[in-house]
């Protein structure tokens, strides 16, 4: 039998987001609120000066939240419905399942991406190369967080455990790094903590791309290198060490 990759990809999107949103539309609002609440606070506190930075930061956080949501959704389907076991015993690869599930998370993020995109068109002004850089940063963070989310989900045994990991990782990826403001706002002695998070490197590249944070070529290259290495390592770990087939 000839199997359709498009069908396999679409199945995850239908099961995890389209059908769910039909029942629980509040989920889309939830995905929308988190980045916007911080964006608004940043806007007021900075008298609007940090709006472009906060918009790109908001987009980075949407991508990161998508990955973290993937972790809980995968764990929910695996532990509460045993869907992952049904899927493992079928002609579907782990990669295709993950790809479909990852994209399904973006469906929830559509309103947030649309509004942030519209705000970016109004308030973020950069070159074509700058926009390409921003998109690359967003995709890198999305790829990193989804691989991390997939990896963790294969080990969790209960949704409570998944929520705990989401809390820990969200803190590391969103509270610690200077995503909504430049790293120069953090006192020097504490910056080392911010650099523990890959989101910091992503934010610096994004802030540089919109002309907010000057970086030397060496600093920019280092940021890219760190971001790529972390993404590749997490991707490798997700492929090789995840408990797809135990």
């Amino acid at each position: 039998m000839k199997r359709s990759g498009l069908s396999q990809f679409t199945a995850s999107i239908l099961a995890n987001s389209v059908y769910a949103l039909g029942n629980y539309p509040a989920m889309m609002v939830s995905m929308f609120l988190s980045p916007f609440s911080i964006l608004i606070v940043t806007f007021f506190v900075s008298n609007g000066a940090l709006l472009p930075v906060a918009i790109t930061g908001g987009m980075i956080m949407v991508m990161t939240y998508s990955g973290m949501s993937l972790q809980t959704d995968l764990a929910h389907l695996k532990n509460d419905f045993r869907v992952q076991d049904m899927v493992v015993s079928s002609p579907l690869s782990a990669g295709m399942y993950l790809f479909g599930m990852a994209v399904s998370e973006l469906v929830y993020a559509i309103p947030a991406i649309a509004v942030l995109g519209a705000l970016a068109a109004l308030y973020v002004h950069t070159s074509i190369l700058g926009y390409v850089t921003l998109i690359a940063v967003f995709l890198a963070m999305f790829s990193f967080s989804t691989c991390l989310g997939f990896f963790i989900s294969t080990f969790t045994t209960d949704i409570m455990e998944s929520w705990a990991y989401t809390g820990i990782i969200s803190t590391i990826l969103s509270a610690l790094p200077p995503v909504y403001y430049p790293i120069t706002y953090i006192p020097m002695q504490f910056r080392i903590i911010a650099y523990l998070s890959p989101a910091t490197y992503a934010a610096e590249i994004a802030q540089n791309a919109i002309g907010f944070l000057p970086l030397t070529q060496a600093e920019l290259a280092t940021n890219w290198l760190v971001l790529i290495i972390i993404s590749v390592v997490i991707g490798y770990v997700a492929i090789k060490k995840s408990r797809w087939r135990e």
């Binding site: 199997r3 199945a11 059908y19 389907l77 419905f81 079928s90």
Partner: peptide
């Protein structure tokens, strides 16, 4: 899956299998 109907669930399973 709680938020699917039986038809949607079976349909999604078959799509996962590549139909």
């Amino acid at each position: 899956i709680n938020w699917t109907t039986p038809k949607q669930f079976v349909y999604a399973y078959l799509l996962w299998r590549g139909y």
